[in-house]
């Protein structure tokens, strides 16, 4: 024999080995992406005695006590009603004197638009439950999302999510998300 044949390695089991590895990775890894409610915390500012006065009508106070009960603008309220109340506060459609003032702001696509000066202030007791707190946050977020979505539909005839970045920025300028998470208080029974 002139040519010496090299013995072939049996490669039939590589598929099995690869399958084994594949299954290991499938089991041990997680594809899930983390979801959550995004918030910006206020930076710490040095305490000053003469804080700028905030008009009562511009603040929407939400209080959550240790029994997970809500007090909205001095009135007892259910979580399910919070969304509508927050929407009415942010938008102030009838320009009521007890709801926030508006200031004219130049916005792209819209021209001059009256933007509400309202701020939502959320305070909670140290004893309240996290789930209840998050539900309140969720409702407030939902109020903003619905308002933005409505405006997007009226102006651009599409959902807020489908708008371009510039359009989204314009809508965000009209409905800026102002939720203040005030320093906690220990509310006594």
């Amino acid at each position: 024999m002139a040519k010496k044949e090299t013995p072939e390695v049996n490669a039939g089991s590589t598929a099995d080995i690869a399958f084994l590895l594949l299954i290991f990775f499938l089991v041990s890894t997680t594809m899930s992406t983390d979801t959550g409610l995004s918030r910006m915390l206020p930076p710490i500012v040095p305490q000053t005695d003469d804080a700028p006065p905030v008009k009562e009508r511009n603040v929407f106070t939400v209080l959550l006590n240790y029994k997970n009960q809500l007090l909205v603008e001095g009135e007892w309220c259910e979580v399910s009603d919070l969304r509508e109340k927050a929407k009415e506060f942010i938008e102030n459609p009838l320009d009521k004197p007890n709801l926030p003032e508006k200031s004219d702001v130049e916005v792209e696509f819209f021209g001059t638009y009256p933007v509400s000066k309202g701020v939502i202030s959320l305070q909670n007791d140290r004893g309240s439950q996290y789930q209840a707190y998050l539900q309140v946050q969720n409702e407030l977020q939902a109020a903003y999302n619905e308002l933005r979505n409505d405006l997007a539909k009226r102006k651009f005839n599409k959902e807020f999510k489908e708008c371009s970045d510039a359009e989204q920025d314009a809508i965000k300028k009209i409905y800026p998300q102002r939720i203040s998470e005030a320093e906690p208080k220990n509310i006594k029974k």
């Binding site: 409610l37 918030r39 910006m40 915390l41 930076p43 710490i44 998470e181």
Partner: peptide, 16 residues
């Protein structure tokens, strides 16, 4: 949250 404010980590997400 207060500790995060002190650490200047202001962007947070409540996982849900």
């Amino acid at each position: 949250k207060q500790a995060l404010r002190k650490a200047q980590a202001l962007k947070i997400s409540y996982s849900a």
